[in-house]
Design a protein around this nucleic acid. Structure first.
Lengths: 232, 232
DNA sequence: GAGTGGTCTAGACCACTCG
DNA sequence: GAGTGGTCTAGACCACTCG
């Protein structure tokens, strides 16, 4: 088991919990190294990844700081798979891998505002064009009202449309885009080499009065980059 | 002057020139280290960045390989600045920093299919919302027919619309999205710490019978990641 | 078994920030 | 001047691939 992911995830958890105020520096790399009993290069690697994922920024000579909430207005928007498939004149597919009542991990629980271990509705879908998988969806919903989704045709394009059909209205969506490495299981599903870089889009959707769902989309790209072509 | 950028740029140049066939491994990290007279960690850092930017992928035990051309169909699409500004009920701005006939760098020349040093039309614009810069555009056009752009109001939203007005029709666009670090000059323009991570979108636009332009957009994000919220 | 990438160490020197 | 991040070294052991 490698060490830097532990340091990274502990820092990330504290950052997400608001444990560092804006302008307040994180522990220095030397401090982290001492605290975790590792070399500075190992501590640094954890901090490197947090920086790359946008959680912090660093200033040489001054320290590492949490990224503020400003300047997060999104410039990128997601094209639907239908739109992409149409552009290449090929057929999209959606395979439902999982649709069940499951148990929230600590990460999912935190995102949904529930204790870890709570019952949640889980939907996992693999989607692509022709026979090439392009994205892996993992969605988690609070189960009030959403259980009825399990009786609906989840292989169709838009789960959002199914929710609307159930009378559930999404009031707001927050999303985040970052570049990550795929774990072995997800890499296998997306048919890419183990550890491939891909885009991870994380979305939290809200009802007028609370959290509805938490979804992650692993989008297979050209490694960490992403290219496309279109006719305007 | 640090060493890994040199290794990185030489590998990248060879990759872009098609110097490695699909399935053909790049030199190993140990080989690179010997060849450049650096430690393996330094050679590795160059390869790390190429992987992160999507130029290569690595397989433990086997080697590092160029990324194939497949699976580059784009999932993300760019929201217009107007659309973003509207979402936050604030005013967008566009400042034209440069609009002139200039000289192609080797990178720009290569992208436009011209020798380095050729005359090209350069437009640089800084765009944002209220007083916060969000993206830096650098566009380069082959000068046939496009010189007339210089007499038009370049501070307006869409240069594409101006081209259409001139009777110039874009037949096809190729684009690529990656995460990069900002150099000092661009970081200053975007008002972010030196070396901040941001998205770099690279676009090549084509006429029916050849290349029209080459544009780069540095999009200030939440470091390497990018978050947004919207009402569906 | 030879070669590859993945991780880690315990140092080092540097540029930079900050009080 | 003390502390910070940026880069680099010369090793080490490991998991993995490939012939």
């Amino acid at each position: 088991m490698s060490k830097y992911p532990i340091i990274k995830s502990e820092l990330k958890a504290k950052l997400l919990a608001g444990g560092y105020r804006e302008g307040e520096a994180l522990p220095s790399e030397v401090t982290l190294a001492k605290h975790y009993g590792v070399s500075r290069m190992t501590a640094r690697r954890a901090v490197d990844e947090l920086e790359r994922e946008g959680y912090i920024f660093r200033v040489q000579g001054a320290g590492s700081f949490p990224t503020g909430k400003r300047f997060r207005q999104g410039v990128f928007r997601v094209r639907s798979l239908e739109e992409m498939a149409m552009a290449v004149h090929q057929a999209p597919f959606t395979r439902v891998l999982k649709a069940q009542i499951g148990v929230a991990s600590s990460e999912v629980g935190a995102a949904l505002g529930l204790p870890a271990g709570s019952a949640v509705l889980e939907v996992q879908r693999l989607r692509g064009i022709e026979d090439a998988p392009l994205l892996l969806e993992e969605r988690h919903f609070r189960i009030e009202n959403t259980e009825r989704l399990l009786r609906l045709p989840l292989h169709q394009e838009s789960i959002h449309a199914l929710l609307v059909g159930l009378g559930i209205t999404v009031a707001r969506v927050e999303q985040n885009l970052e570049a990550v490495s795929l774990d072995a299981a997800r890499a296998r599903l997306l048919e890419v080499p183990n550890g491939s870089a891909c885009f991870l889009m994380t979305r939290t959707s809200y009802l007028p009065d609370g959290i509805l769902g938490f979804s992650r989309y692993w989008v297979r790209g050209n490694g960490g980059a992403f290219a496309s072509a279109f006719e305007p």
